[in-house]
Every structure is written in C-alpha cells, then in structure tokens.
C-alpha cells in the first residue's frame, strides 16, 4: 500500500459480497422492491391522469375553444370556454396584485426588521396556521365579510385567492431574503445607508428572481383553486373583463360540468382541465427557469 494515493471516493459498500444470510438478503431485496413499487404507485396514477386529460381534452381543445362563449344550454355540444379563460386570468391576476406586494412586505418585515422578536414569531406562527386553512373556509370567510355586503364579483374571488397565496408568498420570500448574504447588508450599512434604503436598493434586487419564482408558484397554486371561488364569483356565460360584477373561472367550470350527465358538458370539462393544466405547468416551468438562473448566479 502506498501512502500517496488519493482518498477513495465515498461509495456505499457493496451488499453483494460477504456472508449475509439468505433470509436477510431476501428481506433487503423485498424492501428495495417495495420502495420501487411505492414510486410506481405514485407515478402510474399521475401518468393515467395526464394521459386521460390530454386524450379527452384534445377533442375540443383548439383556438376556437379559448375564444368562444360557453353555450347556455349545457347539453349542447361544441366549444366555448372564453369567459372562464378571461375570468381565471383576471381573478388570478388581481389576486397576485393583492397578495404579492403584501406578502413581500410581510417577509421584509420578518427578515429585516422583526427577526426574532415576539411579534415576528407570532406572525410566523399565524402564517403557518393560515397556510393550513382549508381553501373552502377562506371562501366562506370572504363570503361573510365581502359578498354579503357587496355581492358576488370577480374581485371577491380574487380576495379569497389572495388570502390563500399570502402565506405561501410570505414563506418563500422570507426564505429567499434569508439567503441574501449579510455582508451585502453590512457593506451598505457601513456606507451610511439606513435599513429601508439597504432593503430597497441592495437586498430586494439581490432577492428579486427568487421572490418572482416563489410568487409564480403561488400563482400556479391559486389558478387551480376552485373551492374559494364557488360562492364568491357567481357565474356568467359571456366574458366579463371587469373586475367587478359576476365572473367565472376555468376551475369553477370544470366543477360544474363534471357534475352534469351530458357528454357535451363533460367534453368541455376535459378541455377546460387541459387548458388549466397547461396554464399551471407553464407558470411552474417559468418559475423553475427563473430559479435556475438565480442559482447559477
């Protein structure tokens, strides 16, 4: 043996060699197979669902589908989801405009000002609790404080979605802010900048890509939500591009059409599902690309 060899790469010892008894070897094999099976048990249904949504959704999915109004008689075949597409984009967009600035400000408070104070800890606990609140309870909450007074509107749906997004945005933004090296902050402080100036000019630009990707994940989550929209936005069959007044959304339309026994309506539900999944995946992929660029920096 020479003393000059490089240290060997760390690798798990081989299990094939050695005097391992047959039953122990068998049990080890069995456990390994079970782990592979567990992966299969989750991957197979996923493949099934995606396959079905794509196959059944392709029937009706086309440019026409995205720009035609929903037929008023739901047993009538043919395309039409334009109001829902408009509604989903509008409501989710409005929810983003409400939740992201609030959430980022909350995260800035937690990470730059509050740190480990009692109030910051309490807010963190509340955020955790809020992220566990069922989405339908959020819908009921908005119903009681908004809809009862001002009626059904796309804005009420946006409020409900914003409530769901807020804890996600706060949590991810805080994680990202924590990753900004404190040397940057100290350098800024040494040059005489106040905390808010350091935050706005130094910390936020450094954390921006991460915050954007976190926000996009929250948006993807919100776009697919149905329960909080059921009794906050009402229903329309023509596109409503205004924030106020009744509106509809892709997820709400899928829910309605899935419960109707007409094949035509079910076809529309599948195509709407395909639209929604494409939307969510595009957002997720965009978020991932931004995160990847952030990581490379």
């Amino acid at each position: 043996m020479t003393t000059t060899t490089a240290p060997p790469a760390v690798a798990p010892p081989s299990l094939r060699t050695g005097n391992v008894s047959r039953s122990r070897k068998f049990r080890d094999r069995l456990a390994t197979i079970a782990m592979w099976a567990a992966f299969g048990a989750a991957a197979l249904p996923l493949a099934f669902i995606v396959f079905y949504v794509v196959r059944a959704g392709m029937h009706l999915f086309s440019y026409d589908f995205l720009v035609t109004n929903i037929p008023i008689i739901s047993s009538k075949p043919g395309p039409g989801m334009a109001p829902a597409v408009v509604g989903t984009l509008l409501i989710t967009g409005a929810a983003t405009l409400i939740a992201v600035p609030l959430g980022v400000m909350g995260a800035i408070y937690l990470n730059e000002y509050g740190k480990q104070s009692t109030l910051a800890k309490f807010i963190r606990l509340m955020t955790d609790v809020m992220s566990g609140v069922p989405s339908i309870v959020m819908g009921l909450f908005i119903y009681t404080i908004w809809v009862l007074r001002y009626g059904l509107s796309g804005f009420a749906g946006a409020l409900a979605l914003a409530c769901l997004m807020l804890p996600i945005v706060v949590r991810t933004s805080e994680e990202i802010l924590r990753l900004v090296p404190s040397a940057l902050r100290e350098a800024s402080a040494a040059l005489g900048a106040r905390t808010w100036r350091t935050t706005v000019r130094i910390v936020l630009p450094a954390a921006l890509p991460g915050i954007v990707s976190g926000a996009m994940l929250a948006v993807a989550r919100a776009a697919g939500e149905t329960a909080p929209l059921l009794f906050t936005i009402g229903i329309v069959s023509k596109p409503n591009t205004k924030l106020f007044g009744s509106n509809t959304a892709l997820s709400a339309q899928i829910f309605r059409n899935a419960q109707v026994p007409f094949p035509a309506a079910q076809d529309r539900a599948w195509a709407a599902a395909l639209t929604l999944i494409l939307l969510v995946f595009l957002l997720t992929i965009a978020a991932r690309l931004i995160t990847a660029r952030f990581a490379r920096k």
Binding site: G224, T226, S251, I254, A258, A273, L276, I277, V280
Partner: peptide, 12 residues
C-alpha cells in the same frame, strides 16, 4: 403531482 389542480383530480 403537487401541481395538478384538485378539480382535475376530481374530474378524473
């Protein structure tokens, strides 16, 4: 799997 909206699970 986490990204699929729950309504799509329901539809399926």
């Amino acid at each position: 799997l986490a990204g699929i909206p729950s309504v799509v699970f329901g539809l399926w």
